[in-house]
Write a protein that binds this DNA or RNA. Structure first.
Lengths: 211, 211
DNA sequence: TACAAATTGACAAAAAAATAACAAATATGA
DNA sequence: TCATATTTGTTATTTTTTTGTCAATTTGTA
């Protein structure tokens, strides 16, 4: 019987990085690559690369290495980048605006289909061609459109209430940009971005170096 | 002699999270907290909290727990949040704009003192009161102003060149928002944000749940 | 004051993650 | 074709990280 042993988050969080490097290799028209050569480019061990990839199957060939395009496509499938996700942005502030304008997401399979805000002045306008609706329209919109992911760029004080509303409407994935850690039911997946945390770690490391 | 055993990145990356929770506790006017109670709030083990904090010193007291304000201040010192960092943003696009408008950074000790871009139409304007200069002015500006951190929000194709220029000017810390991993000299610290990676992990986890 | 309850800091144990080692398979070149 | 170089997938080993345990100390209370 299929003993799918659980793949660790450590491995999963490296997948997008492999994906990026493979994408770069394709751009450079490189057709094959060994774990050794990739390890030199990525500054990780060849052993780790082989072990990571083997969690999902044997994509390589002894004596040859990995076919770049094939491996790219396989990782694409694993990450779901071969299918499309529909997203809404809640909060049309500066960050919401920036994300709505970021074309890279669409290229990676994430379509932003609507934006929601409470500000009367913004409602009815468009950001990068995407319409801004009132938050009041959330129930109606989600009833009529399949929404995979809610991107939350609302003020910190509002985020818990908004997240609860979002999940009550049946949305199962949240990409959270507020500093508050969201923890919802076991059936809702959340990725917290926490930009300030990242910046503070940078500050720590800078100070540690003595500058 | 002082055997400062190296503190692991795993611990350091948790510090901003402790910082946030302690900040919240202060707002709630809670004066003391035990590792047990904090562990319940943060959903990590009490053991980990005690061990993490002990990397930096004995901040608690047996039978009592931790004084919230004292611990907050100590973590503040560790993270360097008690001092100020000067930052510049390079790239006045949507993301640069969003970051320039994000007041939270200033509250955490990070002052954005200038923005740089190549677009003639943007040069001379202000974003959230911060002047936008031509990239050509970078050498002059960094010669006359101490810059701790460069925040890079330039297009992906430009980022390596910009990063090289930035480091040649003596800036020792880079907060990179482009999908390209930056790896510069050992004397330059880099934090890569990689928003797309985070979104792709969310996509993976959503798919894994079977939705 | 004395005793029970709580709680840390330190160390030990367990679990997880990363790295190394190597047999088996393939490619390459004489 | 055959011998040698590569290179994977897998298992073993090492390292790192997390969790558990407990003596020592403090608080709070009768």
């Amino acid at each position: 019987m299929g003993e799918d042993k659980k793949i660790s988050m450590a491995v999963i969080r490296r997948l997008p990085r492999y994906f990026r490097y493979l994408s770069d290799l394709m751009q450079l028209d490189i057709k094959r690559i060994s774990s050794k050569e990739l390890s030199e480019r990525m500054h990780i061990t060849a052993s780790q690369i082989r072990q990571d990839l083997n969690c999902f199957g044997g994509f390589g060939q002894q004596g040859y290495g990995y076919n770049v395009e094939y491996l790219y496509n396989e990782i694409s499938k694993i990450l779901g980048t071969d299918k499309r996700f529909t997203c809404i942005i809640v909060g049309a502030g500066n960050m919401g605006n920036a994300l709505a304008n970021y074309e890279n997401f669409r290229r990676r399979g994430f379509d932003i289909i609507a934006i929601f805000d409470v500000d009367e002045k913004k409602i009815g306008t468009k950001i990068n061609g995407i319409e801004v609706y009132s938050n009041d329209k959330l129930p109606e919109f989600t009833a009529n459109n399949k929404v995979d992911i809610a991107i939350l760029t609302v003020p910190n004080k509002k985020v818990i209430d908004v997240a609860k509303q979002i999940t009550s409407l049946g949305i199962k994935a949240i990409w959270n940009f507020s500093p508050t850690d969201l923890r919802l039911g076991d059936d809702v997946v959340v990725e917290n971005v926490h930009l300030s945390d990242s910046l503070m770690v940078l500050g720590y490391r800078l100070r540690e170096k003595g500058y």
